[in-house]
């Protein structure tokens, strides 16, 4: 009985959170010694809890609070009231805003200021081209690429939209930063030379900086900017579109921009990479057979003016592979399918 009294004593102290370490141990060992002890402990805790809660509930003045609540019948809740106030303020503000905007538009039309028209340049697969934008910026478009840009840059920023791969030589103008919209991401540049690859069916966006300074900006609001360091490190940013994660790789700069000079460069590239890039270059569907895909074989080759057949021949000389070209066939809508190439182990 003496022992039990001591445990009860510990429990009352525990409830006010006043047990010291050694007392905690004593209580714990009593609890661990039998299930009956635990049941008894739980019962005691229940009594103490209910007693306390009952006291709290009894202290509440129901009648007074009921009359407070009834006075608010038909009124809006506090948060709604706030929202309503906000709406009122917004309504008051919007009138001068509309007047200002209308005046601005009117003013613009009288001063003959132009509204930029959006243009777009597209290159078919297997074709490369170069254009110059109104600010003097030069853009080289790789095959299968679409660039959307205004016929004249108006406003604080210069903005273009890219699907595919392009090399930019941006005319320096720090007051009007140049943005390349990559559907979910943006690259910000002032005076700079860089290459971006953003094909819709690729999982990564590649950004290679040759000279100057560019930054990757997430167009999701609040996401942090990723600053790209200048060129001498020859850095390539590989951004996974789905995961929104990126890593930086040291790469061979010549390879990144070789396509501009009409050269297709492979340097220790895996089959998947070769298939995509070779396919885009020659507008063909390139398939490596399963054996080759699994083999982990990497290719190194440079093509300049070769045709597809010549390129494949070269590939078969330098690597242990053979190829088969399946010629085009006419489709139902009188267009032609792409040439298909199957590459397999020798």
């Amino acid at each position: 009985m003496e022992d039990k009294d001591y445990i009860y004593h510990l429990i009352t102290i525990e409830f006010n959170n006043q047990l010291d370490a050694s007392q905690k141990l004593e209580l714990q060992s009593w609890l661990d010694s039998s299930l009956a002890n635990q049941a008894e402990y739980n019962a005691l805790i229940k009594i103490l809890n209910y007693h306390q809660r009952l006291h709290q509930m009894k202290r509440i003045n129901i009648d007074r609070d009921l009359s407070i609540v009834k006075k608010r019948f038909g009124q809006l809740s506090r948060s709604k009231k706030l929202l309503l106030n906000f709406q009122r303020i917004a309504a008051i503000l919007i009138i001068p805003l509309i007047i200002y905007a209308a005046w601005n538009i009117f003013d613009r039309s009288t001063t003959n200021e132009k509204i930029a028209l959006l243009k777009s340049s597209e290159t078919a697969y297997g074709v490369r081209s170069q254009i110059q934008l109104s600010d003097g910026t030069k853009v080289w478009l790789n095959s299968g690429t679409k660039l959307t840009y205004p016929d004249e840059f108006i406003g604080q920023t210069r903005e273009v939209k890219l699907e595919g791969e392009a090399y930019f030589q941006v005319e320096s103008d720090p007051d009007h930063p140049f943005y390349v919209d990559l559907n979910g991401f943006k690259v910000k540049a002032t005076g700079t030379r860089f290459n971006i690859s953003n094909y819709p069916d690729d999982k990564d966006i590649l950004a290679y900086l040759e000279h100057g300074k560019i930054a990757l900006v997430s167009s999701v609001e609040g996401a942090p900017e990723i600053q790209l360091k200048p060129l001498n490190e020859k850095e390539l940013l590989v951004l996974n579109k789905a995961l929104r994660q990126y890593n930086l790789q040291q790469v061979d700069g010549k390879k990144q921009t070789a396509w501009m000079k009409g050269t297709l460069v492979f340097k220790n590239d895996n089959t998947a990479d070769v298939a995509t890039r070779l396919g885009r270059w020659f507008n063909a569907e390139i398939v490596f057979d399963d054996d080759l895909q699994k083999s982990g074989y990497v290719f190194t080759a440079t093509f300049k003016q070769e045709s597809l057949e010549e390129a494949l021949k070269l590939l078969s000389y330098s690597s242990p592979v053979k190829y088969k070209i399946i010629s085009t066939s006419q489709l139902g809508d009188s267009s032609f399918s792409k040439r298909k190439v199957i590459i397999s182990k020798k």
């Binding site: 004593h9 429990i11 009352t12 008894e40 019962a43 005691l44 809890n49």
Partner: peptide
């Protein structure tokens, strides 16, 4: 305090299953 808890536990022991019903 010890005495209070001991008496209460004894007095309420018949109701403890009821309390347990409203698990807490």
């Amino acid at each position: 305090m010890t005495k209070a808890l001991r008496i209460l536990k004894e007095e309420l022991k018949d109701y403890l299953p009821l309390l347990a019903l409203f698990e807490i």
